[in-house]
Write a protein that binds this DNA or RNA. Sequence first.
DNA 1: CCTCTTGCGTTAGAACTTCTAACGAACGAG
DNA 2: CTCGTTCGTTAGAAGTTCTAACGCAAGAGG
Lengths: 202, 202
Amino acid sequence: MADTGTTPRERYRTQVRAEIKQRAWEQIAAAGASALSLNAIAKQMGMSGPALYRYFAGRDELITELIRDAYRSLADTFRATAAPQSPADGSGAPGAHLAALAHTLRDWALDDPQRYFLIYGTPVPGYHAPDDITTIASEIMATLLEACATLPSDGPAPFRRAMAFWTRLHGVLSLELAGHFTGMDLDPAQLYAGEVEALLRP
Amino acid sequence: MADTGTTPRERYRTQVRAEIKQRAWEQIAAAGASALSLNAIAKQMGMSGPALYRYFAGRDELITELIRDAYRSLADTFRATAAPQSPADGSGAPGAHLAALAHTLRDWALDDPQRYFLIYGTPVPGYHAPDDITTIASEIMATLLEACATLPSDGPAPFRRAMAFWTRLHGVLSLELAGHFTGMDLDPAQLYAGEVEALLRP
DNA sequence: CCTCTTGCGTTAGAACTTCTAACGAACGAG
DNA sequence: CTCGTTCGTTAGAAGTTCTAACGCAAGAGG
């Protein structure tokens, strides 16, 4: 499976890169992105520090790669979320695709909260993502926009609807993932579902 | 002004602590909380590294103190946001207090985005805020709840309304502050105002 | 099959970081 | 004026990222 690359060298290289990234994700899930340590990853893999620099130019490039993978993962997950049996003319349930996207988003975020925050969390003031990453970001937005365009248009314009969808769901989701709802006698899933429902009937 | 403490020693101590925190805020605003360096602060203040440990037990305690100050600042700013000339019986403009809180929140966040993210940004998996900080957090929530309770009650219950207020405004605000709207031909202030308006008429 | 270039992992070390320990000096209370 | 507390210092341990130089192993070309 997945013999990326032709030569044995390339295969080995991509395999090691993949393992490095996997350990990096484990560290990030455990203690956040700021606690990611190249040295610790190297030790876990049984090799000594600077060896990792054969695979990533540095900590920043590794993190950027993880951010790219996170965007890619969300974009693919969004794309794979088909409108459930809607006959392309938008009959069936009108907002089924949007609702499916909403629940896909929440599942994806809950699956790895720190991955979500790598995309939508606290920005680093100096940092600017490379162009290909912003391209993936607009892919995500495009998927959302398409789903909004299939709705009956007696409500707001597709773009306004998409922005409301994005901002409101991110609002609930990020506060939930950050733990701001704990001890508040509140079911985050229900709050989320309530916002989705409100979004589908304006 | 503000001669906190009686003895000269205490005055000097609180003054140095204040300067340390101020430099810390500058660093955080410039490069994010993860780039905060005690050594750099010490050098800026003309003293050598470990001297700061007389004033803060370590980096974590300093950051916790900054988080506390951020919460305190937001709570005070919220409390100071009076309902504009509403005669206590809730006549006048019904949602004036809520609208004022909304704009106060945005102004406060724009004034120092990293301070906002210190409260509502990416959480550190291991970290749990001390009890007094969660107390301040509930102060903020209480202010919001009170403002929601003065609304005509043909809409949702005050608690639901407060949650919608919180999550929706945080959704728009955090995405704006993180720069996710750049290059999107969209006025964040307008989007924000639109959400506020929608919040006031359900 | 043999060479030879390319790539990988190593150690050494510089420049950082947080943080502890021990020392000396200055300050203020008695 | 003395004496104890507090402050700032330097030294150093244990981390971190990252560069440089070295040796070895593995694949490519003759």
